[in-house]
């Protein structure tokens, strides 16, 4: 049972970045822009978040307060970086995949350059501890307390809050409805007076904000508050895209998909603690490949009846009706 608690406690901080970034991808794609730059946006968020933590860690600020402020910094950085994508993909009507790839390539190189110049290292190392041993009162609750309120990060609760918020914005507001219309049939949306360019900018910017936060939460919850240009976010941005497709571009299905992938990854990295898997004596690298292989299997089964937004990937041109 302890192993089970351990696995769940470790799955959640991994699932939250995937969840947030996949939600970001959902906003962007449902508005009609393929956002393959999520990997780069995550890394931007992780880097600027950690940079902020690095500069304030010696002050007397409370660890959780620093985390919240770092989250805002990361969101801002992700938002600004995503503007580069909207500029190229919406205003300039460039190929969305290529632009995204360029943005993904730019940021690790820029981080390495910057860190080598100013820190003489490959990235940023912080020493603030964001870990929460137990939440007062709630951790006493039987079973649930152990699962969700011990050995965790505040990022888990923020992530769930942002999920609910996203779902409300997405399904219960005028804005959400208009956004979705732009991804399905932009010309129809335009004909009833919706500004397609603005909605696409909004979709990509939301993905920038959520992607930036997701990246920072990855750095906090998975990398212990560090980030570097070599490993970056280890393909989490791309995994998030797979999570989004597996979740069929819908918020709560995305949550389930994120939990599934995060659980696989946690298992892969804690083989030694699971007696029956440890006894099999399989090279650990196979388990590291598992999330990626699982992605392929899942996509193979879900893509045939894919509910992808119809207009995604096609730059909107007013002249084409």
């Amino acid at each position: 049972m302890d192993t089970f608690y351990y696995l769940i406690q470790n799955t959640l901080p991994v699932a939250i970045p995937l969840l947030l970034v996949a939600l970001g991808g959902m906003f962007s794609e449902r508005s009609g822009v393929i956002n393959i730059a999520l990997e780069g946006i995550m890394l931007v968020g992780a880097f600027f978040g950690c940079l902020f933590v690095y500069f304030v860690q010696s002050t007397s600020l409370d660890a959780q307060g620093i985390l919240l402020l770092g989250m805002l910094v990361a969101a801002g950085a992700g938002f600004l970086y995503s503007l580069l994508l909207s500029l190229a993909a919406v205003t300039m009507k460039a190929d969305q995949t290529i632009t995204g790839t360029a943005l993904n390539m730019l940021i690790p190189a820029a981080i390495l350059l910057f860190s080598k110049m100013f820190f003489n290292s490959d990235g940023i190392t912080t020493n603030k501890n964001f870990y929460i041993k137990e939440v007062p009162l709630l951790s006493e609750v039987p079973v649930l307390g152990k699962l969700f309120f011990q050995n965790t990060y505040i990022t888990v609760y923020i992530g769930i809050f942002l999920l609910v918020l996203s779902a409300i914005v997405f399904y219960k507001t005028k804005f959400g409805l208009r956004l979705r219309a732009c991804g399905e049939h932009p010309h129809a949306a335009d004909s009833v007076g919706i500004n397609v360019y603005f909605m696409r900018y909004a979709g990509v910017s939301l993905s920038g904000i959520l992607g930036g936060i997701g990246g920072f939460f990855y750095a906090v919850g998975v990398m212990n508050g560090n980030t570097n240009g070599h490993t970056g976010v280890a393909g989490f941005g791309f995994l998030a895209l797979a999570v989004m497709i597996f979740g069929q571009w819908k918020p709560f299905k995305i949550l389930l998909a994120a939990l599934f992938f995060a659980f696989l990854r946690t298992v892969a990295y804690s083989i030694a603690l699971i007696p029956f898997l440890d006894a099999l004596n399989i090279n650990q690298t196979y388990y590291k490949m598992l999330p990626y292989l699982a992605t392929m299997v899942v996509l193979a089964f879900t893509s045939k009846k894919s509910r992808a937004p119809k207009a995604e990937g096609i730059p909107y041109d007013k002249g084409l009706r």
């Binding site: 632009t99 943005l103 190189a109 820029a110």
Partner: peptide, 12 residues
Amino acid sequence: EIIDVVIAVIIY
């Protein structure tokens, strides 16, 4: 690494 930055900007 400056070259990697330049290459990424060129692609963009």
